[in-house]
Amino acid sequence: MKISKEEVEHVASLARLEFSPAEIETFASQLSSILEYVEKLGELDLAGVEPTAHVHEIVNAFRDDVVTPGLTNEEALMNAPYPEDGCYRVAKVIEGE
């Protein structure tokens, strides 16, 4: 499985990462060799094998609908790079996602 530079750029954009052209080259080659290695999973016959999302067969963990103390506004903002008016300030979002 060869991964192209364009694919690396697309994935970088999905992951909100930015790379120099040289880094893109390096990643394209490293990711290609890793993906080539994982191709070996294709050797296995997986008919009837269910995926494992949780390793133990446990289900249903709940909490009751009861208010518990949280953080103060000061605590919530103590690590914020740009706190303002009790909020986190960010650059304006352009409509759309």
Binding site: P69, G70, L71, N73, A76, D85, G86, C87, Y88
Partner: peptide, 11 residues
């Protein structure tokens, strides 16, 4: 007031 009904989980 903003950011007062918050905790580590929802933040």
């Amino acid at each position: 007031p903003p950011n007062t009904h918050v905790c580590p989980v929802c933040l």
